[in-house]
Each structure stands twice: as structure tokens, then as C-alpha cells.
């Protein structure tokens, strides 16, 4: 209870660590996951890419670094469930009363990926999710999105929503967290990032804002 965790000093410390990692990662070559094992990592890369695919609009979640972002998040207070009330009893309750499981995000992924991959193998001649073609992967994800089926102790639709949200966080957060490589997520939307000064653009009668994005560290697209 308490201590450094959850305090502002923890956040500052934590952020500096992430920031430093982000800066050194530039020359470090391909990212090596710290939390996910190789099978999980293959699943995660494939699933993120289906949620936010490469297409005519530009790069997908994989080349934007969303899997790397999620892997890094697993070792933050968030990943460890330190932002959530995690005391029991853990009861079955109507869905509108919110999350009632005892699992933090890192365990949701560990159990969810294993079970989702097992589901894929069951329905596709023993091939794991990452080895399916894109349309079959999408079909599996759609199954999960709409299913109450348990993946470990996580309902499939809940696991899918966790994956969807974290993927989009990775695509659209500041690159210091490991995703949004080259600011391509922000460029897609037309979000100018940390410019954060629009004195002259309060009302330009519907003209598009003319400047591209800049990150917190000063990177431009």
C-alpha cells in the first residue's frame, strides 16, 4: 500500500525511465519484448495489425510500434493493476457495473492470448493465429469481439476490447511510449501533437490546420 507506487514521484521516475528508453531505442534495432514470450509476441503483432491494418491510408499498428507499446505498458503501474481497485471479493455482476475480475492487464494478456490462440488452432487445423491469413485472423477477432466464451478467466469480448484499446493507444500516443513511430498515427488524423498553441487558429472558417505534428521530444513527421 502506498510507498513510491501511485505517488507523483513514481510517475516522474517512471516517465523518465520510459523516456530514456525511447531515446536509446532509436539505434537499438528491432525491439525485443520484455514481457511477452515469442508465441505471445507473434499473436500480438498479428492481432494489432488486424485491428489497425496497413492500407492506402498508411502504415498499420505493427510498423507503428503498437506491439512494442503494449509490451512496455505491461511493466508500468497500469500493467500491474496498480491503478485499479483489486481487493476482493470478486463477484459476478451485471456488465454495466464494470470490470470485476482479479486480473491486471498483464494477466489478462497472458491468459487471453493463450486461449485465443488455442481457439484459432481449434478452428484452423492446428494453425496458430499468427499463421492464418488476414481474413481468417479478422474472422477470429470478430468471433472474440462478440463472444462471452471464456479465454482463461476473461470473457472473449473483454479481452478483445482490452486489445483494441491498447492497440489504439499505441498508434496514437506520443512516441516516447514506444508506438506512433514517425508520428504516422497523428499525421493520419491531422493531429498536430505537442504544438498546443492555436491562438491564430481559433476560427479560420473551416480551413484545415496547416502544420504537421511534433512530438514531446521535438520529433517532427
Amino acid at each position: 500500500m502506498g510507498g513510491l507506487l501511485g505517488s507523483a514521484s513514481f510517475w516522474l521516475y517512471s516517465d523518465h525511465e520510459v523516456w530514456a528508453d525511447a531515446l536509446t531505442a532509436v539505434d537499438a534495432g528491432p525491439y525485443t519484448p520484455r514481457y511477452f514470450n515469442q508465441e505471445e509476441w507473434r499473436f500480438l503483432n498479428a492481432a494489432c495489425e488486424r485491428i489497425f491494418p496497413t492500407d492506402a491510408h498508411g502504415p498499420g499498428a505493427r510498423s507503428l510500434g503498437a506491439p512494442e507499446f503494449i509490451d512496455r505498458q505491461m511493466d508500468t503501474p497500469y500493467g500491474h493493476g496498480k491503478l485499479w481497485y483489486m481487493s476482493g471479493p470478486f463477484l459476478n455482476a451485471p456488465e454495466n457495473l464494470g470490470y470485476q475480475l482479479s486480473l491486471p492487464p498483464r494477466d489478462i494478456y497472458r491468459q487471453g492470448i493463450a486461449a485465443a490462440d488455442a481457439y484459432a488452432r481449434q478452428h484452423h487445423d492446428g494453425r496458430s493465429f499468427a499463421d492464418l491469413d488476414a481474413s481468417a485472423q479478422t474472422a477470429v477477432l470478430k468471433d472474440l469481439e462478440h463472444s462471452e466464451m471464456p479465454l482463461g478467466s476473461v470473457p472473449a469480448h473483454f479481452f478483445f476490447e482490452q486489445l483494441r484499446q491498447n492497440t489504439l493507444e499505441g498508434v496514437f500516443s506520443d512516441p516516447l511510449h514506444g508506438g506512433n513511430k514517425g508520428l504516422a498515427g497523428w499525421t493520419l488524423l491531422g493531429f498536430p501533437g505537442a504544438r498546443a498553441d492555436f491562438m491564430d487558429w481559433v476560427n479560420q472558417q473551416g480551413a484545415p490546420y496547416p502544420f504537421g505534428p511534433v512530438s514531446i521530444s521535438g520529433e517532427t513527421a
Binding site: 489497425f52 492500407d55 483494441r164 488524423l189 491531422g190
Partner: peptide, 14 residues
Amino acid sequence: WGEGYKDAMVETYR
């Protein structure tokens, strides 16, 4: 999410 998401999201955001 998935196919068609980016198109619609860009329109909504912009």
C-alpha cells in the same frame, strides 16, 4: 476497428 475504420475515423476527426 479493422477494415474501414481509418476512413471513417479520419472523416469524424477532421
